[in-house]
Design a protein around this nucleic acid. Structure first.
Lengths: 342, 342
DNA sequence: CTGAAAGCGCTTACAG
DNA sequence: CTGAAAGCGCTTACAG
């Protein structure tokens, strides 16, 4: 027996949602026939033949009763959830926007639904609710998560990680080769400037910026007064920039951990009437679309279109293509010099 | 029979994910006992008693095998999905960020998972995949969606709509009473200015801004040269503002359809060395957090904390409280005068 | 104190 | 050409 719900529960006392059985009864056929018709299996599988009249009746009944299949039940018998899930750390970054768009595109072309997990417990979600595939941003993973990832992979979840350290193990890893381009950016600035500011964030790959900064200058040459910590918010970065640029011994160049803060720095410079790039050069990180439309356009370290690769990979993996047999995908970052550098 | 998957499918050939039966076998008990222990039913329901030793054995087995319950199966027998879903139109708006945060908070306190739907087919998702509750932003609804909403509501999905027109019908509607405050903003500007610019967006409640603008001025007084269309992107709004503010007959005040574009307008003014508020007053819409940290802080029409109400309502509805028996929730917008007005 | 069994709503191999 | 039946992995009333 089932129907009795635990007391105090939300009234899932549905106005009896129609099931495949309701449809079968209404159309005067078996549930198998309904399933075949609704999944078009009679059209694709020559072993199954349904008369057009029966088809019609089933379709009409389904329509009339407002039937839609219960995906939980479907998933259970097919072993597939038709969900693609995205797990990211920072909702605001343009990087993220691109990944969201790519995931959605891929899902649509595969006729699956795409979701963004809001809470942070990606493992619990994937192992309980399930998904056909998941794209996971490195920031939310910890070093000891690898067994969990492997487990999900062996259980059939197609996993794409954006991560700098994990090795592929049944899942794909997209690794960004960031350092050479950041080093190049830093050398570019160091060749012309003594006082180089740093807007620093210590999250994920953004931490590499600080490393490059320190290594290029040499640890003893690093002036803490030129370093500011930033977080997700634009305002915070703006005020940090105002602060950094207000002193008489202000930096004449700034390297930042992301484009968002670079844009804030640019706005701060405008506000303080500091000419960019003549009195201040700025290099961001991420090569985001928004940075290409600032005034002047932002110089930045990044890649051209970060997300297409993800979309393509998703589609291949979910179609079961053998194609990219390699599971590790390294992408080299480049330095894009635009208007905020000379 | 089940196991055979359709050919060409992703290898859901899981490394045999452990089921409740695996655990039962390992612990030498029945599946019922496993279910009771794992759901703590033996602790809450006095009719069910399990010996501590049995408990231990079950828990140990579950842990050791890395068991996690299949939510599809769970949902099917319990008639609950433990998912709260958010469906929004515009990812970038600060409004949205607040709603996301509120939904996540509510879900956490209810021990449910919270998701954001990326594709736009909310109805298909809710009727197929199911959810215990959904928050739907008005922008994605069409006028003829009402029967769908009712249907979902009668099937037990707790629905919270942010919408200006729908009447509650088994679901909650949060309605924003926007016009009085926008009218007030417009009168404020009109009392001091002849040339008032409009950054216009025609989406959802943002369209009300233009209505207020036109009605206050009178249709014959509207100068199309002072109106610019904006979209989601900050850059676009920035360039539109530069354009609007560059002529010699530029406006001396601007009303905008959202805070994002107001901030862009402010940046454009900085760039063009136009003093705000002395040479240009700006009023935004949304009263977003970011606007309160600009330089000077943005005057805006909106509400204090848009999202708490949503979170509270979600919690009440999902706990089955009778409490807010009223299904229509009207919130009055206010005009917040800050630094971008005199 | 514990287990066998029915049921949630689907899919599909197989037998008519 | 169509249907009865098993199975997906859970939950739970009920009988021991």
């Amino acid at each position: 027996m089932n129907t009795p719900r635990p007391t105090g529960e939300p009234p899932t006392s549905d106005a009896r949602r129609p099931t495949i059985r309701t449809i079968a009864a209404a159309a005067g056929v078996s549930t198998a026939t309904v399933s075949y018709v609704l999944n078009r299996r009679d059209l694709s599988d020559s072993k199954i033949t349904i008369t057009p009249a029966t088809r019609e009746r089933v379709i009409a009944a389904a329509e009339q009763l407002g039937y839609s299949p219960n995906q939980s039940a479907r998933g259970m018998s097919r072993g597939r959830t038709d969900k693609i899930c995205l797990m990211i750390e920072d909702f605001e970054s343009p990087w993220t926007q691109a990944i969201v768009a790519a995931t959605r595109r891929a899902a649509e072309s595969l006729d699956k639904t795409s979701l963004l997990l809001l809470d942070r417990d990606w493992y619990s979600f994937l192992s309980r609710q399930g998904a056909d595939a998941a794209v996971i941003e490195g920031g939310i993973l910890k070093a000891d998560d690898e067994p969990r990832l492997q487990q999900l992979a062996t259980r059939g979840v197609q996993l794409i990680l954006l991560h700098s350290a994990f090795e592929p193990a049944g899942f794909d890893v997209i690794r960004q080769n960031v350092r050479p381009a950041v080093d190049q950016a830093m050398q570019e600035l160091a060749s012309r400037h003594d006082r180089i500011g740093l807007l620093r964030r210590r999250l994920g790959s953004q931490a590499l910026i600080e490393q490059a900064y320190r290594e290029c200058l040499g640890d003893d040459q690093v002036n803490p007064a030129l370093i500011r910590d930033i977080d997700v918010s634009r305002e915070q970065a703006y005020w940090q920039s105002i602060d950094l640029l207000s002193g008489s011994d202000r930096p004449t160049a700034i390297l930042t951990s992301n484009d968002l803060s670079a844009i804030s720095a640019l706005q701060a410079a405008h506000r303080l009437r500091i000419d960019v790039p003549e009195e201040l050069e700025i290099i961001g990180f991420g090569n985001s679309p928004e940075g290409q439309h600032t005034d002047p356009p932002l110089s930045s370290v990044g890649v051209e279109s970060p997300a297409n690769q993800i979309a393509d990979l998703l589609v291949h993996r979910l179609r079961g293509d053998a194609e990219p047999s390699e599971r590790l995908h390294v992408r080299d970052f480049s330095l894009y010099l635009r208007g905020t550098t000379r």
